Computed example of a mutant assay.
Amino acid sequence: MKYWLFLGVAIVAEVIATSALKASDGFSRPLPSLIVAVGYLAAFYFLSLTLKVIPVGIAYAIWAGLGIILIAVASWIIYGQKLDLPAVLGMSLIIAGVMVMNLFSKTGA
């Protein structure tokens, strides 16, 4: 169970780091740049812990899929990025794929 928590921490750290990437303005702003560096370091560290138990394909698919959705939501809230219908439909398919993997696949068991 703790490895799923590690995966969650990795996802959140990646989302924070990626959200700060735009604010870093090409790494010309120190605080957002530091957030990017620390966030990605934490994300990969916790992902590496996750991979001790959860297969890499499953962990990465969940990490990337949920990361995409959370980044889109964060960009909408923080930067006012608009999400059109195709974007929402695409993210819905990502959510469906992650759910199918978790509910029906025996790979991650």
Results as ranks from 00 to 15, higher is better:
K2C: 14
K2Y: 14
Y3K: 10
W4Y: 08
W4Q: 13
V9L: 14
A10Q: 10
A13V: 09
A13D: 00
A20N: 06
K22V: 11
S24T: 08
D25N: 13
G26W: 01
F27G: 03
F27A: 11
P30T: 08
P32R: 02
S33A: 05
I35G: 11
I35L: 07
A37C: 12
A37K: 06
V38L: 12
G39D: 00
A42D: 04
F46K: 08
F46T: 15
L47M: 14
L49P: 03
L49S: 08
T50W: 03
L51F: 05
K52R: 15
K52A: 14
K52Q: 09
V53Y: 05
G57E: 00
A59E: 02
I62F: 05
W63I: 06
W63S: 05
A64H: 02
W76P: 06
G80S: 10
K82E: 10
K82N: 13
D84H: 10
D84V: 09
L85N: 12
M91E: 03
M91F: 13
I94M: 09
A96K: 07
A96G: 08
G97T: 09
V98D: 02
M101N: 05
M101K: 14
N102I: 07
L103C: 00
F104T: 08
K106S: 11
K106H: 02
A109F: 10
